[in-house]
């Protein structure tokens, strides 16, 4: 068996994001009171792409914030060295907003837990929703995504990687075997 295989290509990814965009609009009945927060780094690009897709049909521009969850991680104690800290930038009040969190892969749920803790430090959103491109299972916390691009049952020996043009020069999702 080959070492890695593509489970979603450029067109597939674009179609998926389009669908998520519609689902977000549908669930929230428009863009009123909606705010996006992308989790560094690929969650930010996903949030931007979906905002742009919604922008093609809706007049109002949805505000986007950037969240670095490093300071809220629960595995800092065991990390070999401090992870490099990125900037957090949420240039709007999230009080009373319907915040949609974006991340590329939903796995154990610990990142989302950290992100929710961080968000709550910024204010009291009316609601937090979660959008992910890939849900690969293996949850360790009671967390479910509201919007899922693709459910991808994977073994723990596999690595799911999302590549986005903005960072990786290509749009694709691949599964790799961990040796």
């Amino acid at each position: 068996m080959e070492k890695s295989r593509i489970v979603m290509d450029r067109q597939g990814l674009d179609r998926t994001l389009k669908r998520i965009a519609y689902e977000i609009l549908e669930k929230n009945q428009g863009v009123e009171g909606l705010a996006f927060v992308g989790i560094r780094t690929r969650g930010v690009f996903l949030a931007q792409r979906i905002r742009d897709k919604i922008g093609q049909t809706e007049k109002i521009e949805i505000p986007i914030g950037i969240l670095d969850i490093t300071l809220y991680r629960d595995d800092l104690k065991s990390a070999q060295s401090r992870p490099v800290l990125g900037k957090t930038d949420i240039p709007f009040s999230i009080d009373g907003q319907k915040v949609v969190l974006f991340d590329d892969v939903l796995f154990t749920g610990r990142t989302i837990r950290a992100a929710m803790d961080a968000l709550i430090d910024f204010g009291r959103p009316k609601m937090i929703q979660l959008a992910v491109l890939i849900d690969r299972g293996h949850r360790e916390l009671p967390i479910t995504a509201d919007f899922v691009g693709k459910s991808l049952p994977s073994s723990l020996w596999e690595a799911v990687s999302v590549h986005l043009t903005e960072k990786d020069g290509i749009d694709e999702v691949i599964i790799e075997k961990n040796e």
């Binding site: 670095d68 300071l71 809220y72 800290l85 990125g86 900037k87 957090t88 930038d89 803790d117 961080a118 430090d121 910024f122 204010g123």
Partner: peptide, 14 residues
């Protein structure tokens, strides 16, 4: 990156 934390309303991270 830490500058922003001190500008929050809740200036504390865990």
């Amino acid at each position: 990156s830490f500058v922003e934390v001190s500008t929050r309303e809740i200036k504390k991270v865990p």
